[in-house]
């Protein structure tokens, strides 16, 4: 009895060890642990620590100082402007993204790959250049500068310029989230709806939209995160007029340069929370999107 008890638990452990060492698809234990160790250390130092720093700095003088910093009129106006700009650019890119995805995913036409490359273009342009192009168009020395000045229309160093630059930077997000999804879903359900007598709009709202809603939300989410957090492009077109054309990321910079670290990191912490919420929602949406794939038995 006692002997049996001693013997039985040992055998499976040894088999497992041996099989792990001899598995054709893995490495020796020491190498495995080193790789995991390097990966975890690298990510902790370069990614996790900076995030932790934001919150510790923001709360370094206590929660009172933190809240006071956020209640500053300058902070409030930056938050308002950021929300407004994000709403405008996300709204515009939502409509554009839906239209572009419908045209690209549901139809065949020559030059489709090239069109997708053009849609992607803003991703590969430096944020500063994204702002610069609008300065060249609408600035005092720009192509439309004199014309705008004569009519007293303010685009640069005003909300329209900030919204334009943000729209440029966030241009590809919604379309890029939708195109692969809609291509994969094909056109059969839409064809079925049309053959059953549905109009184009009925087909879109009753068949297409329900099928792409998670993908659409995914695109909007990423678009919004970038819109709220954009710094370089907005910095070039904003003019940094206090209380008027400073978005939250710009205010982070200004306060930081004025050595108001708690205030700067307090605003930064809001943006960091936005990033974290975005990531959590993104993970949830990604699992939703995977569930949404209906297996076809063919």
């Amino acid at each position: 009895m006692a002997q049996l008890d001693l013997i039985t638990p040992v055998a499976p452990v040894r088999i497992r060890e041996i099989s792990a060492e001899h598995d054709a698809r893995t490495e020796p234990r020491l190498i495995r642990l080193s790789i995991i160790g390097i990966a975890v250390t690298f990510l902790s130092i370069f990614v996790v620590l900076p995030l932790v720093v934001v919150f510790t700095q923001a709360f370094s003088r206590g929660i009172g100082a933190y809240l006071a910093a956020l209640a500053e009129p300058e902070a409030l106006s930056a938050i308002k402007l950021t929300l407004l700009v994000a709403a405008i650019s996300v709204g515009l890119n939502l409509i554009f993204g839906l239209a572009a995805a419908w045209a690209v995913a549901k139809f065949d036409f020559p030059g489709k790959t090239f069109l997708i490359t053009l849609i992607d273009l803003p991703f590969s342009v430096s944020p500063v250049i994204s702002g610069l192009v609008f300065v060249l168009l609408f600035g005092a020395q720009g192509f439309f500068g004199a014309w705008l000045q004569a009519r007293d229309i303010h685009i640069l160093f005003a909300v329209p310029g900030i919204a334009l630059a943000t729209t440029f930077v966030t241009f590809p997000f919604v379309a890029r989230a939708l195109i692969p999804l809609m291509q994969e879903q094909g056109t059969q359900e839409e064809e079925a709806a049309l053959s059953l007598g549905a109009s184009g709009l009925q087909t879109f709202f009753r068949v297409t939209l329900p099928n792409i809603k998670w993908g659409l939300l995914y695109g909007v989410l990423l678009c919004n995160a970038r819109a709220m957090g954009e710094f370089g492009a907005v910095s070039v077109v904003s003019g940094h007029i206090r209380g008027e054309t400073n978005t939250m990321p710009l205010l982070v910079e200004i306060l930081y340069n004025e050595y108001q670290f708690v205030a700067s990191f307090a605003i930064a912490s809001l943006l960091a929370m936005l990033a974290l919420v975005t990531l959590v929602m993104k993970t949830i949406l990604e699992s939703r999107l995977q569930e949404g794939q209906v297996p076809r038995d063919d």
């Binding site: 990614v47 900076p50 957090g229 710094f231 939250m248 990321p249 930064a268 990033a275 975005t278």
Partner: peptide, 29 residues
């Protein structure tokens, strides 16, 4: 390994974190 999914999610932080926030955080660090 424990925390694998968390570290997988962490990889996206440089995408998601506004650049100005990353800038001041790295400087403070």
């Amino acid at each position: 390994f424990p925390g694998r999914r968390l570290f997988d999610a962490v990889v996206d932080i440089p995408f998601a974190l506004p650049t100005a926030v990353a800038g001041v955080a790295l400087t403070a660090l």
